[in-house]
Design a protein around this nucleic acid. Structure first.
Length: 498
DNA sequence: AACAGCCAGCGTTAGAAAAG
DNA sequence: CTTTTCTAACGCTGGCTGTT
């Protein structure tokens, strides 16, 4: 059992309405007490009598009447939210355990009907609307004294008698209510009492009860049996605690349901329909659709479309929907962000520092996942400034010697190729680009039989037009550039190894 | 996205209290 | 008197949320 750690402010209690139909249905179950039918709410827990009314049942009944709408319906709300409501209504609420047992019993007995319709869930009260007239059954306005500890501490039989009394009297301040006390039936049976004196004890308790200084009962008496006439209990509730129905008054506080993100829901419906997998909405009781909607609500249209198409692909291939929709989304998301991050690293130039010695997919992934928590723009900015530092400290020049520029041995026979090469080296031109020059020159020399002098002149001119060499990344072993890029290391912490 | 901490909901138990 | 409910513990799990 969870200790209740959430602190809810107690609401200022106000009048509310109960319905005769529901109360009648609930109270009449106790007449079946001798049927020992039991149910277990926990698979391994102790069993409970189905036809028993507990204090939690009464609390639940009142709470349901307050937080359901005037059709006896409540949409997209969890049981726990209803419990929280109960908790805030009562001075001394039952624990969540009792609440869940009571709720389950109500469902079992058909008082609450649970509907799961795709993404939408709904609770609906039976015996609330009269099916014959399709209107709400007779309403009884209740004074909130029933939320007080003084009241909920009463024995269950006493509480039930009070509810029944109010149900009988309705909103009538003038009349008394009376019960014929017949053994084995009527109110005696409903309260599980055999003898009139037992009932008298209960009424005595009620008669002495004061709530905030106000006596609960205005008047009561028990007429003894006279000949064939049964004993008769007459009672009247204190008019101060009796309420009249006021037209236009709000008696309910309907719980706001879980938000469904209408826009994304509509969009997803359209997409699923156009992919011919509209059934997905109702798959797995709508849970997957709900997950899909919540996970995708902030994502781009393009990505949403992509995911829906992925679902269709799986469906077409395996004739069933993906098992774990979250897995699918996170996997695709990872994949997508990784390629975006690698893209940025290439654009800004830091790519070559990620894993300079060899292509290492794991290393790329490590880099990407470290970077994934940053916004794309922000990350790009960080990369740009880090690039300057890396370029300065963690690179080596690609060439030290004219040998690294040599491509054509043939050229050496005709001209002073080495002079040209050292010129390119001096000017820090790209060795690869220079080698292409030589290859081209060799062609012209061999095939076109061009004058070597002209060719030399041409190379000399072309050298200035060649791109500057790019430094080769050379980072210390074990150093991860993302630690620096993402500001985890300061500039002075960098491992300058040169 | 990864992580950590929180919370809802459920399982279990023992013993006290209430109901029958 | 026995049976059943109620309370208050502890603990687990999986989902949710906020942070980084």
């Amino acid at each position: 059992m969870t200790h209740i750690t959430f602190q809810l402010s107690k609401e200022k209690s106000s009048n509310f309405v109960l319905t005769d139909g529901f109360m009648n249905a609930l109270f009449s179950i106790s007449e079946n007490i001798h049927k020992k039918e039991k149910f277990k709410e926990r698979s391994n827990g102790s069993s409970r009598l189905v036809w028993h009314i507990t204090k939690a049942d009464l609390m639940l009944m009142c709470t349901l009447h307050i937080c359901f709408n005037s059709n006896g319906e409540l949409e997209n709300v969890s049981r726990h939210q209803i419990y929280q409501k109960l908790h805030s209504l009562y001075e001394d609420p039952c624990c969540d355990d009792q609440f869940y047992i009571a709720f389950d019993k109500f469902v079992r007995l058909g008082f609450i009907h649970e509907i799961q319709d795709g993404i939408r869930s709904e609770f609906k009260l039976n015996h609330f609307i009269d099916p014959a007239t399709n209107k709400i059954t007779r309403m009884v306005v209740m004074n909130p004294f029933v939320f007080k500890k003084e009241f909920t501490d009463l024995p269950i039989a006493a509480q039930k008698l009070v509810f029944d009394l109010i149900r009988k009297t309705g909103n009538n301040k003038k009349n008394d209510a009376f019960y014929w006390l017949s053994k084995g039936s009527g109110i005696l049976k409903q309260l599980h009492k055999t003898y009139v004196y037992e009932l008298k004890n209960i009424v005595n308790i009620l008669a002495s009860l004061k709530i905030d200084g106000i006596s609960l009962l205005k008047f009561w008496k028990i007429d003894n049996q006279k000949g064939t006439r049964l004993p008769k209990l007459t009672m009247k509730l204190n008019p101060l605690l009796t309420e009249e129905y006021v037209k236009g008054m709000h008696y309910r506080q309907v719980l706001p349901g879980r938000k469904l993100n209408r826009r994304i829901v509509m969009h997803l419906r359209d997409l699923l329909a156009s992919n011919l997998i509209g059934d997905f909405e109702y798959h797995n009781e709508g849970k997957d659709f709900y997950l899909l909607a919540t996970k995708l609500k902030n994502k781009s249209r393009k990505f949403i479309k992509y995911i829906v198409e992925k679902i269709r692909e799986v469906y077409e291939l395996e004739r069933k929907f993906p098992e774990d929709i979250i897995d699918l989304i996170t996997f695709e998301l990872k994949h997508k962000t990784m390629s975006e991050i690698i893209d940025i690293s290439k654009r800004t130039g830091v790519y070559k520092f990620i894993s300079p010695r060899k292509y290492d997919e794991n290393r790329l992934f490590e880099f990407a996942s470290a970077a994934s928590s940053y916004g794309k723009r922000e990350f790009e900015k960080l990369c740009k400034s880090a690039f300057q530092v890396f370029e300065k400290h963690f690179t080596i020049v690609p060439a030290h010697h004219t040998k690294q520029y040599a491509y054509s041995n043939l050229l050496d026979l005709f001209i002073d190729a080495d002079t040209l090469r050292s010129d390119a080296l001096l000017k820090q031109k790209s060795p690869e680009a220079y080698k292409k020059l030589e290859a081209y020159a060799e062609d012209r020399l061999q095939k076109d039989k061009e004058d070597p002098i002209n060719i030399r002149k041409w190379i000399q001119e072309q050298i200035d037009l060649l791109p500057k060499w790019t430094n080769i990344a050379d980072i210390p072993l074990g150093f991860k550039i993302e630690d620096y890029i993402l500001n985890k290391l300061k500039h002075e912490d960098l491992p300058f190894f040169k």
